[in-house]
Design a protein around this nucleic acid. Structure first.
Length: 874
DNA sequence: CCAGTCACGC
DNA sequence: GACGTACGTGACTGGT
């Protein structure tokens, strides 16, 4: 392939991308959809061509020479949306990273720059491709120049040569200008001739060749009205032609040689992609030149640890582990960075008593990345790390929960610290992950520590700026140690019990499976929604209620509506329920039982959820079944790890609604809680305007769903789905609720207004959530952001409270000799293991600590119970 | 390896 | 009136 010149109409491609793609934004709330589309196209261009020269041309300013001809040029055009304008500077940054030249010229449009370049290139016989979304550019096609136009947004591209233009449009490329002159162009406010569209224009041009020729032979034009229009608008038509003709003699201050393209800078590109959240494009960047570029660093590889190396005021301690699961994970190596120097510490020094002493010294300050990971991993090695004063991962999460994502390198890059490679570049990803040469990973680990040395100060400043120091130092940091203890302690499971339940279920599943195949008259995979859909809606011809993107919906709520249609439906629902228990819980839990301890050691993710809740993985112990008896029995397998002990569960009653009452200061709601009313009954009384004794089951159930909706921030649509009513009715319920609780209504209005003003919302302990979509012009995105604004302070404050309660409970327990351990947290409940003899004392202590953890304008109420298994603690 | 669908918890 | 519906994790299918 011969070397090519590629010319890109920057504005056109950006506009196209902007309207074709949903309004993406990165975690800082900067919109990126247009640049994302542009970047994607850029990568494709580099892949498809072998460009020796590239230019991206942009329009300059508001006026052009065309305005002298016609001052209404591009008049009446909608103002560029601010969501797009803010992306113009970004694309320039990206183009710099791509090593691609861009150019704009006062009084000229991108078209003219491209046209002028094409003229120069054509004269030299240079092969050229022009990229745009604008058909006007077709006039530039030639023997050497292909014009590539985006179609349907930006996903498809059509390539035009003079021949293919003729073939597809029926006119030559020279006639494109005449065509446009006749048709006019709404978007550029080019008048053209009224009543002439594409069909008529093509017909005329086929007959007469050019616009001028039409007027010279105007008498030969057939159609009285058409002739009249042409004559009356001759001036406009000729002016239109002038306007749409690309100026190929623009006074460019650059020439072909200036456009030389020599490949992109992988590092800069990857760094920019990270910053704008283009994770999906990362893999397309080839990293040939990724090794150099860094400033050299020198570090010492320690063979023994020496106390004199560490600093009294601050040390970055970075410990590299590649497995996600840090229970018994391999440690690659460590680094320490401080004012005195940079040190690489081989993993075997974890056996060095001097090093261990330093790690365990409460008075030796350590700044780390992922405190909990470090505490747990080293606990498994018998080391109790102490003196951790700062956790950069946790800090990054607190200042913006949307940006926790990933390792120390990624976070450093997002703070502009780029002197460190991404883990993916060093170790590879997925199945291809492997350790590179010793020198390579040692330097990487030191560089990460070094990045952390600069990063920690930025994070500290931000915490202070946001007034989140209390949240961070007094709540999250100490909590991290409590969670580490819980994860390390683990939960005992009765493996035999799981095994026997699994065998029993296995038989029952086979039976049901046979029954279903029998009823269907064919054998198929019941777990495949696609195959199931075919059986139900094609073979058995059940009525189709709802479709998904890929086929028929077979979700439980749809199947429930079909129950009376066919016997098979009930069997499928039952099969689904049991197979969920089998695969996720009975099999799933057995897979994660620890070999040595015979316990389950979950990991609580403290830096993930947008609301401040914890999550739990490998296994997820926050979604063990409870609603249906069949599933609930899984809990019988969760048992105390010692004899004479029991499981105690203590849960907050209606914590979110109490938080709402407090935050909204709604008199009626506050009063209801203060009087100890059943809140769903009270809601039913208020919403239906009836006395307590008149409330029936349906009314209470509906009131409960409304409360649920308020707490979880669901829409009228969501409520209608959960109650099986119309959206109108759901809307009425919500309106009646707001009428009954005007304080709540006022809070909701207030918090949305606040979010629109500040761009974020906060919990009672200053936990933030940014809402980049809150001012979006897209109804869906905006509505979603508005509901999030209403809901996040409620859920998040509840999360704050139980986290604080966990600290308080642990602290009260320390002052006693109770034989008890906290083992789990499930959002509004805490689970303990405790010696039978201490159970009542613990119950009292826990209830008190949880209820007194914070003073609200309503009381907090905790219920608790215990038993021989988690199942029995009900 | 990823997206889509489904289902469990709060 | 749009349009898709809180926060999570995990299993499974079926396409690349």
């Amino acid at each position: 392939m011969s070397k090519e010149l590629v010319l890109i109409d920057g504005n056109s491609i950006l506009y196209r991308s902007f309207f074709a793609l949903p309004l993406l934004s990165n975690d800082q709330g900067v919109h990126t959809n247009a640049v994302f589309g542009f970047t994607k196209m850029m990568l494709k261009v580099l892949e498809d061509h072998e460009p020796s020269h590239i230019l991206v041309a942009f329009d300059a300013g508001k006026t052009t020479f065309r305005h002298e001809t016609y001052k209404e040029y591009k008049g009446g055009r909608q103002k560029t949306p601010p969501e797009l304008s803010e992306q113009f500077p970004i694309i320039r940054e990206l183009l710099d990273a791509f090593g691609v030249k861009y150019y704009e010229l006062d009084q000229y449009e991108a078209d003219d720059i491209i046209g002028t370049m094409v003229k120069e290139a054509d004269a030299k016989g240079q092969k050229t491709t022009v990229y745009s979304g604008d058909k006007d550019l077709l006039q530039l096609a030639s023997n050497h120049t292909t014009v590539s136009l985006t179609r349907k947004g930006i996903s498809e591209i059509d390539h035009f040569t003079p021949e293919s233009i003729e073939e597809k449009m029926g006119i030559s490329k020279e006639q494109i200008i005449d065509l446009k002159a006749l048709m006019g162009d709404q978007s550029d406010n080019i008048p053209g001739v009224p009543g002439v569209g594409e069909k008529t224009a093509v017909k005329l041009l086929k007959q007469f060749g050019t616009l001028e020729n039409i007027y010279e032979n105007i008498d030969d034009v057939s159609g009285k009205k058409l002739k009249e229009n042409l004559i009356n608008n001759q001036e406009e038509a000729l002016m239109s032609k002038e306007l749409v003709t690309i100026n190929q003699n623009s006074p460019l201050k650059i020439s072909l040689e200036d456009l030389k393209y020599e490949g992109y800078h992988s590092r800069e590109l990857v760094s920019a992609f990270k910053a704008y959240g283009f994770q999906s494009l990362m893999g397309q960047v080839e990293g040939e030149d990724s090794e150099q570029e860094y400033e050299e660093i020198e570090f010492e590889v320690l063979s023994e640890f020496d106390q004199s190396l560490v600093d009294e005021s601050q040390n970055i301690l970075y410990v590299e582990m590649l497995d996600d699961n840090y229970h018994n994970s391999h440690i690659v190596g460590c680094s320490i960075i401080n004012e005195k120097g940079y040190y690489y510490i081989p993993t075997d020094l974890l056996e060095d008593q001097t090093f261990i002493n330093w790690l365990e010294d409460d008075q030796s300050p350590k700044t780390v990345f992922n405190k909990k990971q470090l505490l747990v991993a080293l606990k498994w090695r018998g080391i109790e790390v102490k003196g951790i004063t700062f956790d950069m991962q946790l800090a990054a999460y607190i200042v913006n929960p949307a940006s926790h994502d990933g390792d120390l390198s990624s976070i450093s890059h997002s703070y502009g610290l780029t002197e460190v490679s991404y883990d993916e570049e060093v170790y590879g990803k997925g199945a291809k992950q492997q350790l590179p040469n010793e020198e390579v990973y040692q330097e990487h680990i030191v560089r990460k520590g070094l990045a952390g040395f600069k990063l920690n100060q930025l994070l500290k400043d931000e915490l202070k700026q946001n007034e989140q120091e209390n949240l961070y130092y007094e709540l999250e940091m100490p909590l991290s140690a409590v969670l580490a203890e819980m994860e390390y302690t683990g939960v005992k499971v009765d493996v035999d019990r799981l095994d026997s339940m699994q065998k029993d279920l296995s038989n029952r599943l086979s039976d049901i499976e046979a029954k279903i195949h029998n009823l269907a008259g064919s054998e198929f995979n019941i777990n495949s929604p696609k195959q199931l859909g075919k059986v139900l809606f094609e073979d058995l011809e059940l009525p189709v209620i709802k479709k998904t993107k890929t086929g028929y919906s077979t979700s439980a709520d749809i199947l429930e509506k079909l129950q009376h249609e066919h016997e098979i439906v009930e069997q499928i629902l039952h099969y689904r329920q049991l197979s969920k228990l089998q695969s996720t819980y009975l099999e799933g839990l057995q897979k994660v039982v620890h070999q040595d301890t015979h316990k389950i050691h979950t990991r609580f993710n403290q830096v993930l959820t947008q609301t401040g809740r914890l999550s739990s993985v490998e296994p997820n112990l926050q979604n063990i079944p409870i609603r249906l008896e069949e599933g609930r029995r899984i809990r019988q397998a969760f048992v105390p790890s010692e004899d004479d002990s029991v499981i105690l569960a203590a849960d907050y009653s209606q914590i979110e609604l109490r938080v709402l009452a407090h935050i909204a200061k709604d008199e009626k709601l506050v009063q209801a809680f203060n009087e100890g009313k059943d809140i769903h009954t009270q809601t039913a009384m208020d919403v239906f305007d009836v006395k307590e004794e008149e409330i029936n089951d349906l009314m209470r159930r509906q009131a409960k769903a409304v409360n649920f909706g308020i707490v979880y921030g669901i829409s009228d649509y969501g409520l209608s789905q959960s109650l099986g009513i119309t959206r109108k009715e759901a809307e009425q319920f919500i309106n009646k609720y707001f009428d009954s609780y005007p304080g709540v209504k006022a809070y909701m209005d207030d918090i949305v207004a606040q979010a629109k003003r500040d761009g974020y919302v906060e919990t009672i302990m200053n936990r933030r959530r940014y809402l980049p979509d809150i001012n979006s012009r897209n109804f869906n995105r905006r509505s979603f952001a508005e509901r999030t604004a209403m809901n996040s302070p409620i859920q998040g404050s509840a999360a704050d409270i139980i986290k604080q309660a966990m600290l308080d409970v642990v602290q009260s327990m320390e002052g006693t000799n109770l034989n008890a351990t906290m083992i789990l947290q499930v959002h509004d409940e805490l689970i303990f293991e405790v010696k039978k003899s201490d159970v009542e004392a613990l119950q009292k202590l826990v209830k008190e600590a949880m209820e007194q953890t914070i003073e609200l304008s309503v009381p907090l109420l905790v219920d608790s119970s215990y038993g021989n298994t988690w199942y029995d603690a009900k």
